[in-house]
Write a protein that binds this DNA or RNA. Structure first.
Lengths: 146, 146
DNA sequence: CACTAATAATTAGTACCCTAACTAAAGGAA
DNA sequence: TTCCTTTAGTTAGGGTACTAATTATTAGTG
């Protein structure tokens, strides 16, 4: 195996990305479980805590997720009582995905989540911010032209 | 929404990670489809092109994937004729996952893959390497202690 | 040697993830 | 106004991804 192998696993950004993503997200599981959330659900709630109500399309664009992924996911959050989905009055193709009081109140418990993960990672916050900025660059480069 | 909101989406490394990972991996789909591979399968093949045969456990550790994920995935690659799975003689709990001649030959077509993705991303190779190194740091921090 | 504990891989179950197809509603053009 | 095109969200289907449970094999202990 030559030292300059173009297909070497440790040369592939996509592998580093996939493995890091899965592994980091895996750390959230025990932290989010007491809140009754999976990681993708947590991301949805983060978006709604920023702004609610929002449409499925808006959530999809914000989270880089397809409607087909969001649809059942939102359904499960609705069943859990954290949000409601109602047809918009001005455009009945669209849904207003809106936090319930329970969904809103969950935010205060979620405030402890990032700190727990940062502590588990044991990296400097400044380094995490640098990594995050790199990822934002990468996401922009990979995203479809607007 | 305060400017220093600890739960702001764009402050979460995990969100940047999830979105970037999904989006970048999504770019591979049309490139890998002519090779008959999904992205996770591509990663498995990369590992086997480095070294074959390998056990499921070895592949799992290398790729940060659970055996439960690998089991059906390898089965599909076996059905596709790219690899075989055989009980090891020295330890019948373990499998030897070994490339077939077809699996081995696929590598030459796969050599074009990274270049296509890099071109699509339009980022300098040096920047991609920097990002990859960051991710490797992150993966190490997130991984269970050895 | 007998028995217990640990290990490797598979299966079951749940929750994503995407593409493709579909239904219903809205927008736009003639 | 009518009709075609586009859009929003859902459903279907295939492929992951994980935890938990299971089966069979191996390792370790007395």
């Amino acid at each position: 195996m030559p030292a300059d192998d173009p297909l070497a696993l440790d040369r592939q950004v996509c592998f580093a990305l996939a493995a890091a993503s899965r592994t980091v997200i895996g750390l959230y599981r025990p932290v989010l479980e007491p809140l009754g959330l999976t990681h993708p659900q947590y991301l949805v709630m983060l978006a709604l805590w920023e702004r609610s109500p929002r449409t499925v399309r808006d959530l999809g664009e914000t989270l880089s997720l397809e409607p087909a992924t969001l649809s059942p996911l939102l359904k499960r959050l609705e069943i859990a009582g954290l949000l409601t989905r109602a047809r918009r009055v001005d455009d009945e193709r669209a849904l207003d995905v809106e936090l319930t009081p329970a969904g809103r109140e969950l935010r205060s418990r979620a405030l402890a989540v990032p700190g727990k993960i940062v502590a588990r990672l044991g990296l400097e916050v400044s380094e995490l911010e640098r990594i995050r900025d790199s990822l934002t660059t990468l996401l922009a480069a990979a995203s479809p032209p607007q």
